[in-house]
Deep mutational scan, measured.
Amino acid sequence: MQAFVKTLTGKTITLEVEPSDTIENVKAKIQDKEGIPPDQQRLIFAGKQLEDGRTLSDYNIQKESTLHLVLR
């Protein structure tokens, strides 16, 4: 499924993900596309910070959801 990641600069990245993907996995995909190390990434969805060990389905993130990427 497709999900979108919006950065603070307003850029939107499109990712191909599965509901079973972990947040860690998603961060690795963002690193592949953008070169941002996962340890600098914080992903926010519905106002919550997403934890590495959880999956997209844990957070009820469905296709075409938009996550927000904040860098630390």
Rank of each mutant, 00 (worst) to 15 (best):
A3Q: 04
T66I: 15
D52W: 03
S57W: 09
S20V: 05
Q49K: 09
N25K: 15
Q2S: 10
V17W: 04
K48V: 14
I36P: 04
T12M: 12
D58N: 06
P37H: 12
K63Y: 08
Q41A: 05
M1R: 04
F45P: 00
E18R: 14
Q2H: 12
E18T: 15
E16F: 13
Y59M: 03
G35V: 02
L8G: 13
E34N: 10
T14C: 09
A46V: 06
P37L: 07
M1K: 03
T66K: 05
L50S: 01
R72K: 14
L71F: 08
D21L: 05
K63N: 15
D58I: 03
T66F: 08
T22F: 08
K48C: 08
L15D: 00
R54Q: 09
L50I: 04
A46D: 14
Q49T: 15
T14M: 11
V26Y: 00
K27F: 03
I36F: 12
Q31W: 15
P19S: 09
N60D: 10
F4Y: 13
H68S: 07
S20F: 11
P37Q: 07
T14V: 14
E34V: 15
E24S: 12
V70T: 10
L69T: 01
I44R: 05
Q31D: 05
I13K: 00
Y59G: 01
G47S: 05
S57Q: 13
V26H: 00
I23Y: 01
K29L: 09
A3T: 12
M1T: 04
R72I: 15
L8M: 13
S65K: 07
S20G: 12
A3D: 01
K6Q: 12
Q41P: 01
G47Q: 05
A3L: 15
Q31F: 15
I36Y: 13
T55I: 07
K27A: 02
Q62R: 11
S65E: 10
E64R: 06
T22D: 03
L8T: 14
V17L: 11
L43D: 01
I61T: 03
L69S: 01
A3N: 03
R54D: 05
T7D: 07
V17Q: 00
T22I: 04
Q31S: 11
L71P: 09
L71H: 09
L43P: 00
T66G: 04
V5P: 01
F4E: 04
T7I: 11
E24I: 10
R72A: 14
N25V: 14
G10A: 03
L56A: 02
Q49P: 12
K11G: 07
D39P: 06
S57P: 02
G47N: 07
N60P: 04
L43V: 04
Q62S: 12
V5F: 05
S20D: 11
Y59P: 00
A28D: 06
D32L: 13
K63V: 08
K11V: 09
G10C: 05
E51R: 09
E16Y: 13
D58L: 03
N60Q: 08
A46C: 09
Q2G: 04
A46I: 06
D39L: 09
I44T: 10
T12H: 06
G53D: 11
V5T: 01
S20R: 09
K63P: 15
E64H: 12
K48Q: 14
L67D: 01
H68P: 01
V17H: 01
T55S: 08
I44S: 10
T12Q: 07
P38D: 04
P19V: 08
T7G: 06
E16L: 13
N60F: 07
I30W: 00
M1P: 02
V26A: 02
R72E: 14
K63E: 12
H68W: 14
N25G: 09
G35L: 05
E34Q: 07
E34L: 15
Q49G: 07
T14Q: 09
H68K: 07
E64V: 06
L67G: 01
Q41I: 12
